[in-house]
Design a protein around this nucleic acid. Structure first.
Lengths: 198, 198
DNA sequence: CACCTAATATGATTTAAGTCATAAAATGCT
DNA sequence: AGCATTTTATGACTTAAATCATATTAGGTG
């Protein structure tokens, strides 16, 4: 979300993570601004019974984990690489200097936060009050529209596992599998050798 | 969140709402920046069966409904007065001019969005994977810490109805009533003639 | 290519929260 | 003060999704 050039000018260093490695943990103090250069990062929580909830998934070019920088609170979730990744990091101080001296970058940042808040609003309402099938479809549509820049009429291949869909919607794998089957029967999704298309 | 003086300088006008009146509806286009001068506003959704979900409640001094201004999307929820209210409104154009010419106001805005994103993250994880009692307690603690500026050791009176708690956590009134009873038995809450204290 | 792990799949059973019905207490209004 | 509405309260019953068990298929790796 911030131009890599700009990040580098403000002293960005690169953090290399293998799939499965942890960047930061829930409860830790935020000291850096992070942006994905390559790979993929998920932010997640675990409830008291060890069930995972995925807050969101961040791909190339996405920044993440800034809210705690702005409000001096600890991280509300963990950040874990779900693919081998390279992350740009700049210190909190440099980050604020950058925003201060680059109003357009600051505005980009604000727009990005607004976007994420929007997604959270939509999903909160879905998760709290809709049936599994509705929730899953909304999630897939969000990924189709916002993550991939594909056209609405084009066929979109869902690159999430059933387990990831479950963890993003607060459901169980079995429920997701059964719901996806049912959505296919209704013609709302396509399954081609186990891959889901929308 | 933006100084009233500044809002007025940028042409703010006042909108008067009686309890229950609607300011804007889900799906509408965002054209104004809003801030509560007095009263209280809730943002909510209704699912397919008519069940309400309250996204958040905004009191005096809070601004709300900005994300759609930044990302050119329709409102993801309705805004309804839950008490007689006076709302300051400035046009989208004035709002952006204001941010552009007042970097500190812009930063305030960003901080505010970060705060709300933080709340949404915490509640999303709660709603999707924790038991009713846990969810309710987290919500109450959030209101105690963030809405009221009360000290953690001070007794805090919860000014939400059981129904509102239900709509904020995605539960049913009956479940909330029973959970609160149970939380009282466990000594985690206090009930004094039907009012909840934490 | 064979093996191991991850992902998908399906049936049977359980259970927690939702639903329904009904009531009593509190609050607000004229 | 009296009536209507809202809020809190409780018991009985239902149900959808979670849980548990187990199997099959696919994908990655040495």
């Amino acid at each position: 979300m911030i131009e890599e050039q700009l990040l580098l000018a403000f002293g960005a260093h690169t953090i290399v993570l293998k799939k499965g490695e942890i960047l930061f943990e829930e409860g830790a103090t935020a000291k850096y601004f992070f942006q994905v250069h390559s790979g993929e990062i998920k932010m997640n929580n675990f409830n008291d019974e060890g069930k995972e909830f995925i807050q969101s998934i961040f791909g190339e070019g996405n920044c993440f984990g800034e809210p705690p920088l702005f409000i001096d609170k600890p991280y509300p979730a963990n950040a874990v690489a779900i693919a081998d990744s390279e992350i740009y990091a700049i210190s909190k101080e440099s980050f604020f200097k950058l925003l201060y001296s680059n109003p357009e970058a600051h505005l980009n940042m604000t727009v990005n936060l607004a976007q994420r808040l929007y997604y959270k609003s939509v999903m909160a309402s879905e998760i709290s009050s809709q049936e599994p099938e509705h929730r899953i479809l909304k999630l897939i549509d969000y990924f189709k529209e916002s993550i991939s820049q594909i056209q609405p009429d084009e066929k979109y291949r869902v690159d999430l596992t059933r387990q990831q869909i479950a963890d993003l919607t607060g459901l169980r794998v079995e429920t997701v599998i059964r719901s996806i089957k049912s959505l296919e029967k209704k013609g709302l999704l396509l399954i081609e050798n186990r891959k889901v298309f929308r």
